[in-house]
Design a protein around this nucleic acid. Structure first.
Length: 563
RNA sequence: UGGGGGAUCGUCUAAUGGUAGGACAGCGGACUCUGACUCCGCCAGUGGGGGUUCAAGUCCCUCUCCCCCAGCCA
């Protein structure tokens, strides 16, 4: 496995930055990741985080984590802390921690400047009237009767808004731009509103709070951001972004560049929808392992390195896309394959009796922790007369190409020896409850006879030494690639009823049961698993399946079933 | 039918007038004490129609489809 960093494939934003450095427009660059602390970050945000931190990092620049905390009604400290934890988990550390609320005073002073230059006015129309005056997509708007109020009057009203003399919604401050603009964002946008609410950082100091467009661009300018990267829906805000900065004595004028958000299939990525899933109890929380949130992904066991590699591989463009979950999963497998110690675990146990193995005896066998990495060492695996094997590894009447256990057939027990299936024991219902097999002592791993080849190898765990654990098999949250595609239907209708399968009686090697939260494993032939960081306790281990191994047998089976 | 964007293999993404390339998936093979991993090979794309040019994914015209915008949200 090569450690060489793959050359970052280029993208249009990176090309712009390169040009700006080469032309001398910027000697160093500054980017920022600007979340609103009103929800949890998801894997789509990770794209933006990787972009902003990645590009600054590549060119020796800096990146700010800035909370866009301009709406006291929706934001809080808990979300802020969770976001910082998520960014750090992803592997990034900001050069500066900032808050839009740090700039409330400057933002206010710039608003005064705008008013004094006759480019902003206090609006008395209510929200409904403002909407009516704004016009529609195809009709121009009308100018407010308060648009040409004298500067002194505007100043006075704005001052009183700030002082808390008015009710929420009574007045707003609007930029005076152009009510007939084709771009609706330019039809005298609201830049301040009254909120007699306590802000989680500034307390009761303010009664007016800036709107996004006012706060964001100026915050960028104050911080000396060189490239303000955002998603496509802000594209028609750019003229406003530029207008606002052009009409105040801004300390700098960053360039806003838009890129497409990152979407995945079989999930939803909007904060509102994710919140709904949490609040209505369709999942156990923001950190449910099935959620696309970073908290969920972390709990699921996806390594942060794999998320970064994933977005690095996906690239940046302006075309909207929905990426196959399979691509992400593959990235996760690639990462886990290298780092995860191997172990054997039986998810759906079927008893197998080694009829020629001494009763009451335990033999300890050597097994590689990682077949491609000797440095990870060996572990001792106990074998006893009775062992558990995977029920799906036995078929009484198997199809061709089934290389596992079958009546009279031979198979290798991984890390042990070859066994031959002599007898099947059934219960009264006709279900197979036990297999009686004879093992070949000469075929034991490490012995010369081990070179004898049989078609199949299966995993197993000693019935004496194995430990029962709870295993949670996570699957996609939705049954369709895009749950939001059909606008006539509620996305909840497409929830996958089988997205979480809890198995109580899985059997693992003792060392796995003793693992710590967050420990990763490959259950050989089955998949990658992680000790649940929330519910796993020493007395009751819980393992989440991170992702299955690729399974070409499943494909063959499917093809055979299809004829 | 206002404005702003977008359309390249199945998926994502390169190619700033000069061989349409890469990754993942898929298919075929090799290897294998994980039907994993790894390795080798293959398949596969410029939305449609015109035009300019020696040469067009790229420039021009036109058509089609998709996304975003009428919050005192971000």
């Amino acid at each position: 496995m090569s450690n060489d960093k793959q050359i970052t494939s280029t993208n249009f934003i990176r090309n712009i930055v390169i040009r700006d450095i080469e032309s001398g427009k910027h000697s160093s660059i500054v980017t920022r990741f600007p979340p609103e602390p009103n929800g949890h970050l998801h894997i789509g945000h990770a794209k933006s985080i990787c972009l902003n931190f990645g590009i600054a990092d590549e060119f020796g620049g800096t990146t700010h984590l800035r909370f866009d905390d301009t709406n006291p009604l929706k934001e809080n400290e808990d979300f802020m802390n969770a976001i910082m934890e998520d960014v750090r988990w992803l592997g990034f550390e900001w050069d500066r921690l900032c808050h839009a609320s740090d700039y409330f005073q400057q933002l206010y002073e710039y608003a005064i400047h705008l008013i004094k230059s006759g480019k902003a006015y206090v609006e008395e129309l209510n929200a409904e009237e403002i909407r009516a005056y704004r016009g529609t997509l195809t009709e121009v708007g009308r100018e407010s009767p308060f648009r040409d109020r004298p500067v002194t009057e505007n100043l006075d009203r704005f001052e009183r808004m700030k002082a808390g003399e008015f009710e929420d919604g009574q007045y707003v401050l609007r930029a005076k731009i152009d009510m007939s603009a084709a771009n609706i964002n330019l039809r005298d946008p609201v830049i301040y509103r009254i909120r007699n609410a306590s802000h989680h950082r500034t307390g009761d100091q303010w009664h007016i709070y800036p709107m996004y467009d006012w706060a964001h661009g100026i915050s960028d300018a104050i911080e000396g951001i060189t490239h303000s990267l955002c998603t496509l829906e802000f594209e028609d805000h750019r003229p406003l972004y530029d207008w606002l900065l052009d009409n105040i004595p801004a300390p700098s004028h960053p360039r806003q560049i838009e890129f497409a958000r990152g979407n995945l299939d079989y999930t939803v990525m909007s904060k509102r929808k994710l919140r709904q899933l949490v609040e209505e109890g369709h999942v156990s929380g923001w950190d449910d392992p099935r959620m696309p949130t970073l908290a969920g992904i972390r709990r699921r066991g996806y390594p942060p390195e794999s998320i970064r590699a994933f977005w690095d591989a996906m690239g940046i463009s302006k075309s909207e896309s929905i990426i196959s979950m399979g691509v992400l999963e593959n990235q996760v497998r690639d990462d886990l394959n290298v780092r995860a110690p191997r172990t054997m675990a039986v998810l759906d146990p079927l008893k197998l009796v080694l009829t020629n193995f001494p009763e009451g005896e335990t033999q300890w066998l050597d097994a590689a922790v990682h077949p491609q990495n000797e440095a990870m060492g060996i572990r001792k695996v106990p074998v006893t007369r009775e062992i558990w094997v995977e029920r799906s590894d036995f078929m009484e009447d198997p199809p061709r190409k089934f290389f596992r256990l079958k009546p009279g057939g031979e198979v290798r027990l991984r890390n042990a020896f070859i066994v031959k299936c002599n007898e099947i024991v059934k219960n009264e219902q006709g279900e197979v409850v036990e297999l009686h097999c004879e093992f070949d002592p000469d075929s034991r791993s490490g012995l010369p006879g081990a070179s004898r080849k049989v078609k199949g190898t299966i995993h197993w765990v000693s019935a004496v030494h194995g430990v029962p654990v709870e295993v949670r098999l996570c699957d996609r949250l939705f049954t369709v690639p895009n749950p939001l595609a059909d606008k006539s239907r509620d996305f909840l209708e497409f929830l996958n009823a089988h997205s979480l399968d809890v198995i109580e009686g899985a059997i693992v090697e003792a060392a796995v049961a003793e693992g710590a939260p967050g420990d990763l494993y490959q259950f050989e032939r089955t998949g990658y698993f992680v000790h649940d960081i929330v519910d796993s306790t020493p007395g009751k281990p819980v393992l989440n399946r991170i992702v299955t191994l690729r399974d070409s047998w499943a494909r063959i089976e499917k093809e055979m079933a299809a004829g």
